[in-house]
């Protein structure tokens, strides 16, 4: 009983501390960016990077290294799940679960699967124009594959092809960064022309990177889902 009360007291302290420091020291919604770095992103973002979506400009260009780190995190997690669940999988070809998906789900998945892939591709191709980008597009692709897994009990992805695409795409991202370093002495420098904002082929290397991230995130999340689903019951 005392453990519960200690926990509740501590949680109350934490809640009060976080809420009140935020409430009275950081008034909600007032314009604090004048002192910080973000007004450079806002005022010079478009003509610096050519991307009209400022968030994408920051994610890929200004703080591109964070995204490189981010992709590494996901890559490590996928490898980690693979290493953790190694040789716990069921023998090939054995059905995943007894009950077959209903007819509607199976036909629906056959129709919707390509649509969802296309929609995911649309998201990360237009990363620098419309909201959304590599991560969101990749997640949509992963849900598409998940949908396929749910509907078809014997379907599972071909590991070699997925690992190949994953590493090819990952290497392009790293190569883009290294080429930036070779050409201009700055890692991940935007060496392609910015083009006119709003165009599809604008914003230099941002679309390339975001396409790479989109495919990579899609492949990795599907890999994680596949690893977990394949575990012997």
């Amino acid at each position: 009983m005392i453990k519960k009360s200690i926990a509740l007291i501590l949680i109350a302290i934490l809640f009060v501390a976080i809420f009140f420091t935020l409430a009275n020291d950081l008034p909600f919604g007032d314009n604090r960016t004048t002192t910080g770095v973000s007004d450079k992103y806002i005022y010079h973002g478009v003509n610096d990077t050519g991307a009209s979506n400022l968030v994408t400009a920051i994610v890929v260009n200004y703080r591109g290294f964070d995204t490189l780190g981010e992709v590494t995190v996901l890559f490590v997690a996928a490898t980690g799940v693979g290493a953790v669940l190694y040789n716990m999988g069921r023998p090939a070809g054995k059905k995943r679960k007894k009950t077959e998906a209903s007819l509607i789900v199976r036909t629906g998945s056959r129709i919707l699967f390509p649509m969802m892939l296309l929609f995911g591709a649309y998201i990360f191709v237009h990363g620098h124009l419309t909201p959304g980008g590599g991560f969101q597009g990749g997640a949509v692709i992963a849900t598409a594959f998940l949908f396929k897994y749910v509907s078809d009990t014997r379907y599972h992805i071909d590991h070699n092809k997925f690992t190949a695409t994953e590493s090819v795409v990952g290497m392009t991202f790293a190569l883009v960064g290294i080429m930036g370093l070779l050409l201009t002495g700055y890692f991940l420098f935007n060496f392609l022309p910015n083009g006119s904002p709003g165009e599809l082929l604008s914003a230099g290397i941002i679309p390339i990177i975001y396409v790479a991230i989109g495919i990579k995130v899609g492949a990795e999340l599907t890999g994680i889902l596949d690893n977990m689903m394949e575990v012997e019951q």
Partner: peptide, 23 residues
């Protein structure tokens, strides 16, 4: 050697290893 390469190269190799391992 630029310090960032010390992160870039291992990452590049990390992506390379699985595909080379197949072969």
């Amino acid at each position: 050697i630029d310090p960032t390469l010390m992160i870039g190269i291992p990452l590049f190799m990390g992506f390379l290893i699985p595909s080379v391992a197949i072969v």
